[in-house]
Simulated assay, not measured.
Amino acid sequence: MTTLNSRLQLALIKRKKSKNALQKGFTLVELLIVVVILGILSGVALPNFLNQADKAKVSAANTAAKAAANAFAQASVTGDAFTTPDGVLKGTGATACSDGTDSTTFTAGSPDLDGDDKPIAGTGLATPAVATVCGTGVTLATGATS
């Protein structure tokens, strides 16, 4: 009788262990805490992450305008041909240089880079970058802003 009783107890213990193996997992409270933590992290990090695209557009516009102006100044000194890069507009400045010649401006980040008076989606900044060339001197007259 004792062997039957001990076998019965052993079987019940095994059954209980197998149920616990199936019932292992996270509670609803634990899952809700994880969701809240993820929500807080995304609320803090996401705006900073999305702002990086605007900063990159501003930096690219400033770099493009200054690089085009530097290339133009170099070409005017060496007598080489100069072609305006894509995405940059070349124009003559409204102000004269100290030596009496007109300044040359290079604009990047303008919303209308193809000249058809229709903005190109996603390319415009609040203020485009404008680099000015006077003789061989180059200055970033207006830095781009988003």
Results as ranks from 00 to 15, higher is better:
141 A>V: 02
58 V>I: 14
9 Q>I: 10
67 A>E: 13
118 K>W: 02
134 C>K: 06
63 T>Y: 06
115 G>V: 03
104 T>D: 10
146 S>F: 08
60 A>F: 07
74 Q>E: 15
19 K>E: 13
36 V>E: 02
146 S>I: 05
59 S>Y: 01
135 G>Y: 01
26 F>Y: 12
88 V>W: 05
64 A>L: 08
38 L>M: 12
39 G>Q: 09
101 T>G: 11
95 T>L: 10
74 Q>P: 02
79 G>W: 10
94 A>G: 15
85 P>H: 09
99 D>G: 07
69 A>K: 00
47 P>T: 09
137 G>E: 11
121 A>R: 08
13 I>A: 15
116 D>N: 14
96 A>T: 14
134 C>P: 00
62 N>F: 04
123 T>P: 00
130 V>Y: 02
53 A>C: 00
81 A>Q: 12
107 T>F: 05
126 A>E: 07
119 P>M: 05
146 S>P: 09
85 P>L: 02
50 L>A: 02
14 K>P: 00
80 D>H: 03
117 D>W: 01
143 G>C: 00
52 Q>I: 12
59 S>H: 08
26 F>A: 06
132 T>P: 00
102 D>N: 12
102 D>Y: 08
56 A>T: 09
6 S>M: 11
113 L>G: 14
78 T>S: 14
106 F>H: 06
56 A>Q: 15
49 F>D: 07
75 A>D: 01
